[in-house]
Nucleic acid binder design. Structure first.
Lengths: 205, 205
DNA sequence: ACTTTGAAAACAAAAAAAGTTTTCAAGATT
DNA sequence: AATCTTGAAAACTTTTTTTGTTTTCAAAGT
C-alpha cells in the first residue's frame, strides 16, 4: 500500500501533461512502476482517480485562496494576489485536459465549472464589496458583474488562440490585464494603494 | 469534394491542439462540419490523415529551410534563421502529440525522428562546414558533433520540465541558447558577423 | 518453512472508435 | 418539372482498445 499519498502527484503530472485519454491505466501503472492491481486497490475506477487528481488540484487552489483571505491586507492587494494564483493555476489546464474532461467525465467537468463560476466568483465578489467599503473600489461598480468579468479574463489564458501567439511570458499578460482591470474599478485612493502594492510585491507569479 | 486542400489545416490545428487520440474521426467530422464519409473519400483511414498532416508539417519546414538555403547570406546568418524557424516550428509538437504519435503511429514517429536526425542535422552540418570555409566558424569544431548538439538544443524546447517553469518568451530562450552556441563555434571574424547580423534581423521568431 | 505482498502478465468484459452503409434533403442537371 | 447527384446525418457493424479482474510467481518479511 505504497501508492496513494506519495504518487498521486505523479499521476496528476502525467494526466496534465498527456491528457486523460492518452494516459491509460496500463500506461499509468507502467510509469508509476506499480501494477494496475495496486492502483485499483486505492481507487475504484479511473473516474475515481481523475476525481482525486482534480479534487486535489481544486483543494490546493481553495486553500491558497483561503489563506490569502485571512491576510490582514487591503482588498486591492488581496485581489491581485488571488488573481495571480488563479492565472498561475489555470495554466495547467491544457486544451487536451479540458476536452477530455468535458467529453469523458462530464460530472467532473461540471464540478470544475461550478467551482470556478460559483466559489471563485463569490470570493471575488465579496472582495470587491469589501474594497468598496474600504473606499478603494468605486461604488458604481457592480460586484456581481465585474467578478464574472474577472473569471472571463482568466478564461482567456486557457484559450491558446488568444494570447499564445504573442509569445509573452504569463507574467506580462497577467500584469497588463490587471492594470486594466484594477485601474478600471478603483477609486483614486485605491489607485494609490494599487501602485504601492504593485511595487511591493513580486508580480512574477 | 470540398475537403482536402482547404480543411487539412483545420485538421492539423485540431490534432495539434487536442492530440491524436482525443480527436476521434467522429469529433473531427463534427468540427469540420462534414460527414465521416467525406473524410474517408479523401483519406483511406485515420493513419493516412495523420500522415498527411504530419507530412504537410514537415514539408512546410523543409521548404522554409530550402528557401533559406538559397539566400546569398553568410553561413552564420543562415544558421540563425534556420534555428529560429526550427525552434518556432517545434513548439507545435506538444507532449500529447509526441506521446500519441509514438504509441499509436510508430512509423510516423520514426519518420519524424528520421527527418530531424538525418535531414535537418545534415543541413546544419553542411552549413557549419560552409561557415568554416568562409572563415566564420573555427576549424577545430566537428560539424557532425555540433549539428547534433544543435538538434538536442531544440529538443529541450519540447520538454516542458526544462524551460517552461521559467515563464520566459520563446524568443528569450532562443536568444540565449544561440548566444552560447554561436559564440562557441565562431571565429572572432564570425563573431563580428554574428553581432552585425543579430542587430539587423528581427530575432523575435 | 510459511505468509504476505505486489509486480507482471494473462484474461474477460465493456466501451469506444474506426470504418461502412443507409437515409434523406437540398441543389444541380437535363 | 422530373431526375440525378451530392454530401450531411445518423444508424450500423466490426475492429480495436481499454478497463477492470484474476492468476502467476518471485522476493521480502515473519
Amino acid at each position: 500500500m505504497s501508492l496513494a499519498p506519495t504518487h498521486i502527484h505523479t499521476v496528476r503530472e502525467l494526466f496534465f501533461r498527456y491528457g486523460l485519454k492518452s494516459m491509460t491505466m496500463d500506461e499509468l501503472a507502467r510509469q508509476l512502476g506499480c501494477s494496475k492491481k495496486t492502483i485499483y486497490e486505492h481507487y475504484a475506477d479511473k473516474k475515481a482517480l481523475v476525481h482525486a487528481v482534480l479534487g486535489g488540484f481544486l483543494n490546493e487552489h481553495r486553500s491558497e485562496m483561503a489563506a490569502l483571505d485571512q491576510n490582514p491586507e487591503n482588498a486591492i492587494a488581496k485581489l491581485i494576489r488571488m488573481a495571480a494564483i488563479g492565472f498561475q493555476k489555470m495554466r495547467n489546464l491544457t486544451p487536451t485536459i479540458l476536452f477530455d474532461l468535458q467529453k469523458s467525465y462530464p460530472e467532473l467537468w461540471m464540478e470544475l465549472e461550478r467551482y470556478r463560476k460559483e466559489e471563485i466568483v463569490e470570493i471575488f465578489k465579496r472582495l470587491i464589496e469589501r474594497g468598496q467599503h474600504e473606499g478603494l473600489i468605486r461604488k458604481e461598480i457592480d460586484p456581481s458583474v465585474v467578478s464574472i468579468m474577472h473569471l472571463q479574463h482568466t478564461n482567456l489564458l486557457l484559450d491558446p488562440v488568444v494570447f499564445s501567439h504573442l509569445d509573452r511570458p504569463l507574467a506580462t499578460i497577467f500584469h497588463n490585464i490587471m492594470e486594466v482591470f484594477v485601474g478600471g474599478i478603483t477609486t483614486s485612493q485605491g489607485l494609490d494603494v494599487w501602485n504601492t502594492t504593485k511595487s511591493q510585491m513580486n508580480l512574477q507569479p
